[in-house]
Design a binder for these strands. Structure first.
Lengths: 227, 227
DNA sequence: GACGAATTGGACAAGCCTGTCTAAATTTGT
DNA sequence: ACAAATTTAGACAGGCTTGTCCAATTCGTC
């Protein structure tokens, strides 16, 4: 029994592993307490590391904050694009496939630790670090929406949907799928798996009511674009 | 020329007017800097009041914060219910009336100063003051959604819409109408009047595509509830 | 105009936090 | 096993902030 009964047990870790521990703990503390309220001692304790190690790795509080944001941005974008890659381009059951996709999107990108943390940091400190979050803004939502819009456009082209503006449809899809999670998001909590499924189901249902290809009596469904 | 050329000019104000000035300035500073980063001296300066006056009126920083949240909650709820009262129960032009309602909702409740401030405070400090924001949660979104759902139910009953679950429809209406303002909200900014109108137009259009009463060839439109 | 209440500006102590420094202990690489 | 690099714990100065106190001034009201 080498280690005492300290509240958290930290097995020995490598140099790099400690760096990660510090960034993770910092993300948590920055989110919980805000930038100004975040305390380096607390971050160090939560990372299971001495305060000096935090300074050795990251220089000062602001550099640490930047490292945290870059880290979260990178991981979130990776998750988002990995998930968009699973978009149902050739749906067997359009509704079921879109619901499953929406659930994946929520679970892997929006409701997971990184997503919630990044959102909160942007909301809380976005005004003070415009240049830092400009990067996120361009690479994150901008590209996400474009990518998603392209997928919806393809679905429409293949005759599965009737869409006017794919960009609008993509944004509305995300909005609908999260419509019932707003309060949970607002308070920074993580919705249960069941809430996610419910919101996705309701959202996709409404989305398809609005954008499903109108079933025409005979063939001829090409020129159907609502003004 | 009594007053010097100080950057802001504060005409003499009454006791109560100063109290309001302090709460307003505090709301602004708490939102900009976060609770921990908010500085009483800065609040006093921004209110055009001495620091001692802040303490005289509100006791300490935490009590001031509570006063700010209560103030914002009250004003926001009042605005929301006043706006819901303008819901188009007997629409002349359903789409135009719903768009106008959505724009009012945004302008008077969601995008105005109070709405943006309250949202940011909830997001930033909600985790630390659960009991304080529980009040908001019950009186705000809970009642808003119920009230809005009731209005939509009435529209459906009157034959203007085909709605499965009015609560879901109400949440989805709000989500759709704000779908294109997400990024602006995230960064705490206020969207332009044009952006609000655009988002409302697109959102209502999709909402009606999903929920508009299906036009049936003959009369008989009573038993139309989708499973 | 005069009196009491409110306000002001400044000084002040106490506490907290950041960031630095050091010497000892530990880990890593060879 | 040995040397270099890293980590640790603690002390420490400097700065900032909260909240209090007080004397002088201004304001509201009669």
């Amino acid at each position: 029994m080498k280690l005492g009964v300290s509240p958290d047990i930290f097995p020995p870790r490598s140099h790099e592993a400690k760096r990660v521990s510090v960034v993770d703990a910092a993300a948590s503390v920055f989110c919980r307490e805000g930038y100004a309220g975040a305390n380096i001692d607390l971050i160090a304790a939560e990372a299971g590391v001495s305060r000096q190690t935090v300074y050795n790795h990251h220089g000062d509080k602001e550099k640490l904050f930047v490292a945290v944001v870059r880290d979260l941005t990178e991981r979130c974008n990776a998750g988002i694009f990995a998930t968009i890659a699973t978009f149902p381009d050739q749906p067997a059951n359009l509704e079921a496939d879109l619901i499953a996709f929406a659930v994946r999107m929520n679970r892997n990108c929006i409701c997971n630790r990184d997503g919630r943390f990044l959102r909160k940091l942007i909301q809380a400190e976005g005004g003070r670090y415009p240049e830092l979050f400009a990067e996120w803004r361009e690479q994150g939502p901008g590209r996400t929406w474009s990518a998603l819009a392209a997928r919806f456009a393809r679905l429409a082209f293949a005759g599965h949907l009737s869409i006017g503006d794919p960009d609008v449809a993509a944004r509305q899809f995300l909005a609908l799928v999260n419509a019932e999670l707003q309060i949970t998001f607002m308070l920074g909590g993580a919705p249960t798996e069941e809430e996610v499924l419910r919101s996705a189901t309701d959202g996709v249902h409404t989305f398809l009511s609005a954008f499903a290809k109108k079933k025409l009596p005979a063939g001829k469904q090409a020129m159907l674009v609502h003004a």
